[in-house]
Amino acid sequence: MSNTENLLDAFRYGRGLEKQSLKLKIHRVFGVVWAQMKILLNYKMQFFLEVIDIILNVLIYYFIGFLVSGDELAKLGYRTSYQAFALVGIALSRYIWTSISRISRRMQREISIGTFESILVTNTSIDLWIIGQALFGFLWSSLWFVGTLVSGILIGIPIIITVYNLPQIIFIVLFSVLVHASIGILFAAIAILYKQIETVLFVFSTTIEFLGGVVYPIAILRKYQPLYYLSLMIPFTHSLELMRKVMISGINIWDPAASINLIALSLFLPLVWLSFKVLNYYYEEARKLGEISSY
């Protein structure tokens, strides 16, 4: 068989197989995840530094925990050590940071290396690509989450993980990631048109980590009423409260003490729909203005 016949044969073979089915859409989303995972694993140093980062974070708050008494936390409603309190905070905050920042950062990276336009001319919609990126961010953060918790457990930090609350923990993580990924998509939408939003992202994520109470109970903010109410308006606050109630206090997610946070978090669900609308709007604007490939 000649070379040309080989080419013809290669094209003939696939005729009629490319259909726009749901299965194919899922295949594409996981294709994005697979590629991102491979790229990340090829940066071996980064992978190694991530592991060091997890251990250092746990150790920092482990030693800070000796400065904060459990009695103080108990007065604020948490019957646990500070180490356990902070461990859950930093484990979950990674999810949130990744959910919010990953998509826009990845988009900027793809633009700068010149692959973004190549992706956009494929028949995968930008929505599917974004979902793939969000899913990869979620899976990668899950490794971080588990790594942080395991590191904490190994040095004796008391957190509650049982077969009964594990599904609830997973549910909280998924729910939180969904809500925060929508904020991430909103940032990505802005990044398509306005490009450098790294500083905005940094300020935003630092603010929500500060107001959300990663390393201190938000009850402390009651002394500063405006800040306290502001913190209640942030979805991350409710994600974290919910997680701490389940993992530290052993409260069931459907218990009124916890479900109040679940309801508050649910109020942010329309953001998921809104974020895709805004993304598509900015994407169309960028196509009109010729801003897709500039950075």
């Binding site: 197989l17 490319e18 294709g31 590629a35 494929t122 028949n123 995968t124």
Partner: peptide, 10 residues
């Protein structure tokens, strides 16, 4: 990766 994005069967 790009074959996947183009929807080409593996």
């Amino acid at each position: 990766y790009f074959a996947t994005l183009q929807g080409v069967n593996s």
